[in-house]
Amino acid sequence: MQGYWTLTRRELAAYFYSFTGWVVIAVATFLVGLSFVVLLDRLGNAPSPAPVTELFYQTYYFWLIVLLATPVITMRLFALERFSGTFETLMTTPVSDLTVVLAKFSAALVFYLVMWLPMLGCLLVVQRFVHQPGALDAGTLAGMYLGVALVGALFLAAGCFASSLTRSQTAAAMIGALLGVSLFSLGFLAQRVPTSASVFRQALAQLNVFEQMQDFARGVLDTRAVVFHLSGTAFLLYLTLRAVESRRWR
């Protein structure tokens, strides 16, 4: 347990020591701000009954940020340590492989959630000016943040796995982005599958992270979606663990 906290703290600190961490935060903040400008502009032209949080996810900026930021956040986790050789000093301490994977993933997740904080500010600004209590209530906000965290966890786990496969951060980011985009497109594939293969189609529809996120943003907590995200994350982290252990059986 001590190893876990020590490592998580260091990994998290490493984000703020590095230029990359600040760039990620800056880009995310910029895109969030931009999306809100677009959103408010649209709302000014045509008022909508839907909550602001839901409208935000229809702008695609959210997905742009997730798909762009998660591979960059996770790319250094294992690849950099392998490249610089610190992987060896790390793995020869009495800390288990599982602890290492979980600590690195946790640090990435915390950083990712920190990255989303500016959005909270934007939402508060919106609330202040729309003078409508229904525009943003605590439940919707909680549902949305849970959604952001769950989607993030899934994509970050994919990024972790990508990073554990290679010594090159660039390759890790590219593989991570590839996995992320594939995951994202999976749900849209359902519309392409012929109706005759209805079981397959239904199964694919369950994997639609885009629609699931819309539910979350509406404040709807669908257990299936939660289970899907959590099990997907766990599976990808398991693959990461196997990749980290691979030096033992390769």
Binding site: Q2, G3, T6, L7, R10, A14, Y17, S18, S84, G85, T86, E88, T89, L90, T92, T93, P94, V95
Partner: peptide
Amino acid sequence: YMPENNPLHPEMRVREYLKFRARLK
């Protein structure tokens, strides 16, 4: 164990690094 080429975390401070390593161990 000190591996070949003595890999360290270059962004950390000396005391901070050693503290981190000691806690990790």
